[in-house]
Amino acid sequence: MMKQKKCMTRNVSVHLLTISAVTLLLSINTVMAAAPNKIKMMADACLTCHGPNGSGSGKIPELKGLEKSDITESLFGFKSGDEKSTIMGRYAKALSDDEINLLAEYFSALDK
């Protein structure tokens, strides 16, 4: 990243800068600071088991970049008990329908 920034200090066009700034943003999803709000806080709770960025951890599945409908289907299934699970049913029962939708939106929006 430092290398990228150094390059940019030389003569570059504003046009190129815009593209690079976007690339820079997309390339860092590990150390992004984001103000805490309800859904950010609830999504961060998932990372304890699912790992940084929801990238998955060992046999615990990845969440980031999944289709929103796949996440909602699983969570509603865990909540109702229609979808079998070892532990997720016990967590999902605490979530409201709105929270499930928001969590699905959050994780599906993260880059795979």
Partner: peptide, 11 residues
Amino acid sequence: FASGWYKGITM
């Protein structure tokens, strides 16, 4: 999952 949990929480 216990092993996955350990890796996840320590990361």
